[in-house]
Amino acid sequence: MRQRYSFHVDQGGHSVTVNVRSGWITETELLVDGKECAFHRVHGHGSYPLTLGARLAEEPPRPLAVTLDRTGTAEHPLSCVLDFAGTTHPMPENTAR
């Protein structure tokens, strides 16, 4: 059965979203300001932790990274953390899909 997870945070004037579709093939996408900046695809349920990186379209470009990891709980099996401007920010799961 295919599972879907979505995480979102607004940080530093930018919208950051991570969408995960897991099942036979697991696809993870990183969206910044609504544009896909990184994509990961693997057969199976994926291997975690998984880190995806991007650069903000600013002058000068600023890097950011998101890290997904398993939590070990059935209620919220994945967690997501944004690393931006030298600090980490937990990304809440968007349950209203």
Rank of each mutant, 00 (worst) to 15 (best):
M1F: 01
M1V: 14
Q3K: 03
Q3H: 09
R4T: 11
Y5G: 15
S6R: 15
S6W: 09
S6I: 04
S6K: 15
D10V: 15
Q11N: 06
G13Y: 04
H14G: 10
H14Q: 06
S15T: 15
S15I: 06
S15C: 09
S15R: 03
V16H: 07
V16P: 11
V16S: 07
N19R: 09
N19Y: 03
V20E: 05
V20K: 05
R21V: 13
W24D: 03
I25N: 08
I25D: 04
T26C: 14
T26N: 11
E27A: 11
E29P: 02
E29T: 14
E29Q: 14
L30W: 04
V32Q: 05
V32P: 03
G34H: 09
K35Q: 08
C37Q: 10
C37H: 10
R41K: 11
R41M: 13
H43Y: 00
H43I: 04
G44Q: 13
G44A: 05
H45F: 10
S47L: 08
S47C: 13
P49F: 07
L50V: 11
T51E: 13
L52R: 00
A54L: 14
A54N: 14
R55H: 11
R55I: 01
R55V: 02
R55C: 00
R55D: 04
A57V: 00
A57F: 02
E58P: 08
E58Y: 03
E59Q: 07
E59V: 08
L64I: 06
V66P: 12
L68G: 03
L68F: 04
L68V: 05
D69W: 12
D69I: 01
R70M: 08
G72K: 14
T73S: 13
A74N: 13
A74C: 14
H76M: 05
H76C: 04
P77S: 00
P77T: 00
L78Q: 04
L78G: 03
L78H: 07
L78V: 12
S79M: 14
C80D: 08
C80W: 11
V81R: 14
L82S: 12
L82Q: 15
D83I: 01
F84M: 05
A85G: 02
G86A: 09
G86M: 09
T87E: 04
T87R: 12
H89R: 04
H89E: 01
P90W: 12
N94R: 15
N94K: 09
T95Y: 02
T95P: 00
R97E: 12
R97Y: 07
R97M: 10
